[in-house]
């Protein structure tokens, strides 16, 4: 979605701690890539979209973040958003979170992916046009219809009825 939500006051419905935990998690799920020229899911524009989307499932997302903090407390004696940005530490907590709370982890990953893969820069990096399907649509090759020739030559094989 590019920068269109960058000035959105998103995140107001989550606490600062929840927002930080979510940002840390989404950056961990989809990190930036120099190789592919891609931002992380914690990029300002993308994270604004993530927060706006998460607000539509506020209760479920807050529950998931509580479960993440619970796991983080167990593993590292601290809330997830307050942990040092050590990728090994974060990845260890995240893995335990996925094992113990697969549904909640799946929800947060789904919101992350939904928003990340509609970002202008990400779509362009995937050789996509940064636009919705309608109204322009897409071109599809007809393909090689001569492939059907051997099937055309096949005798009818439906079952006869009494």
């Amino acid at each position: 979605m590019g920068d269109q939500h960058s000035t959105d006051a998103a995140g107001e419905s989550f606490t600062a701690e929840e927002t930080q935990a979510l940002k840390t998690l989404v950056e961990m799920i989809i990190p930036a890539s120099q190789e592919y020229g891609l931002p992380s899911a914690g990029d300002t524009a993308i994270f604004t979209d993530i927060l706006a989307t998460a607000r539509s499932q506020q209760v479920e997302v807050s529950t998931a973040l509580s479960a993440l903090d619970e796991v983080s407390q167990d593993c590292q004696d601290g809330d997830f958003g307050a942990l040092p940005l050590d990728q090994d530490v974060l990845a260890g907590v995240a893995e335990t979170f996925r094992q113990r709370h697969p549904a909640e982890a799946g929800l947060l990953a789904a919101i992350t992916a939904q928003c990340y893969y509609r970002d202008d820069r990400v779509m362009r990096a995937l050789d996509m046009e940064a636009r919705p399907p309608h109204p322009l649509g897409y071109t599809l090759n007809q393909g090689d219809w001569s492939l059907l020739d051997p099937v055309r030559d096949r005798p009818e094989f439906f079952r006869k009825t009494p």
């Binding site: 961990m28 799920i29 990190p31 990845a91 789904a110 992916a113 939904q114 893969y117 990400v122």
Partner: peptide, 17 residues
């Protein structure tokens, strides 16, 4: 792309991180 990512994440074909 979103469906691909979700399928990959859910089936362990795309890792976190």
């Amino acid at each position: 792309p979103v469906s691909t990512a979700l399928m990959g994440l859910q089936r362990g074909r795309i890792p976190w991180g």
